[in-house]
């Protein structure tokens, strides 16, 4: 953890004269996993879409980036197995970070990603706020859209991982499932992958980059900190809870050094450009292929 995050109290940074205007939200391990998932997701999307649309010039070009139709599949399988490994490591991580003393009550608590009735209520309150008929809901640590994103990835990993493993080793998997299961697995893999890509490249990018709260980019997952002022408006319940527990001060951080900020923006915008390029290419080319 770098020094600009270690800062305990809202003091003034001696070098840059920055005040503690940010709150730590994600640990380095969480950011590492997000970064790894992000990179793997882009590679899987590019290799998968390239193979899927290899009948078109765009698909051929995408495959050529990875050395051709055959080696794109090799890379797709290797990265897929790495993603499954990452998912299993995430399971171990969950076992470690779960607060077992308050288990299972804490599953419905505010620090948990498990959906609770409050999320449904806040979803409708938020809708009411869109139309100006209700005050803005006071979100806690996780907004309902963030919980949805987490579980979408979670079940997406399970569905894509299982169907992908079946397809990657067809002879072995036909001993466990009937061979026609591979027809089904391929369609499941395709639709789930297209759903995941469209969700990430449209909705996740909009929420994390485009909407005014996070424009031009929410750097939380890259730097680990969020802006104190806008968090105070969006997630007041979380900050209030931190203050009550006396853990607010220790989470305060100053603005990251310029090179960290620049690296965050670079990483985020390259990923966003790649995702949007894939999305546009897929929309143009997928109607032309043999499914």
């Amino acid at each position: 953890m770098s020094s600009w995050q270690e800062r305990k109290a809202p003091t003034v940074n001696a070098k840059t004269n920055d005040e503690a205007t940010r709150v730590r939200r994600f640990t380095p391990l969480q950011r590492f996993f997000h970064g790894g998932l992000l990179a793997a997701f882009i590679v899987q999307g590019a290799t998968g879409l390239g193979r899927m649309s290899v009948e078109t010039g765009w698909g051929k070009g995408l495959c050529r980036l990875f050395g051709g139709y055959e080696s794109a599949l090799v890379l797709h399988k290797i990265v897929g197995i790495l993603m499954i490994a990452g998912f299993l490591i995430h399971m171990v991580y969950l076992l470690v970070v779960i607060d077992w003393r308050r288990f299972p009550r804490m599953l419905l608590g505010p620090d948990s990603l498990v959906p609770s009735p409050r999320d449904a209520r806040q979803f409708f309150e938020h809708l009411g706020w869109f139309f100006g008929v209700r005050p803005h809901p006071e979100f806690d640590r996780w907004g309902y859209w963030e919980k949805f994103d987490y579980w979408a990835v979670f079940w997406g990993m399970v569905i894509l991982g299982i169907s992908g493993l079946l397809l990657a080793f067809p002879v072995a998997s036909s001993r466990m499932v009937p061979g026609w299961g591979l027809n089904v697995a391929l369609w499941v893999h395709r639709i789930e992958a297209l759903l995941a890509m469209a969700h990430v490249f449209i909705i996740h990018f909009f929420v994390a980059h485009v909407r005014r709260h996070s424009f031009p980019m929410d750097r939380a997952m890259f730097e680990g900190t969020v802006d104190l002022e806008s968090t105070r408006r969006e997630k007041p319940a979380w900050l209030a809870r931190l203050k009550e527990a006396g853990r607010f001060e220790e989470r305060l951080a100053t603005e990251a050094p310029p090179f960290v900020r620049a690296a965050s923006y670079l990483f985020g915008f390259v990923a966003m450009a790649a995702g949007i390029a894939l999305l546009v290419g897929a929309v143009i080319n997928l109607p032309r292929i043999t499914w």
Binding site: H126, L127, W129, F130, F131, G132, P135, H136, E138, I202, I203, F206, V207, V210, R211, R212, H213, S230, R232, R233, E234, P236
Partner: peptide, 20 residues
């Protein structure tokens, strides 16, 4: 998400949320 974006755009960054 579209409604959300429009609402935040119209409300402005300061007055987006309830002042505390």
């Amino acid at each position: 998400t579209a409604l959300w974006g429009i609402r935040e755009l119209l409300a402005g960054k300061k007055g987006t949320h309830r002042e505390r």
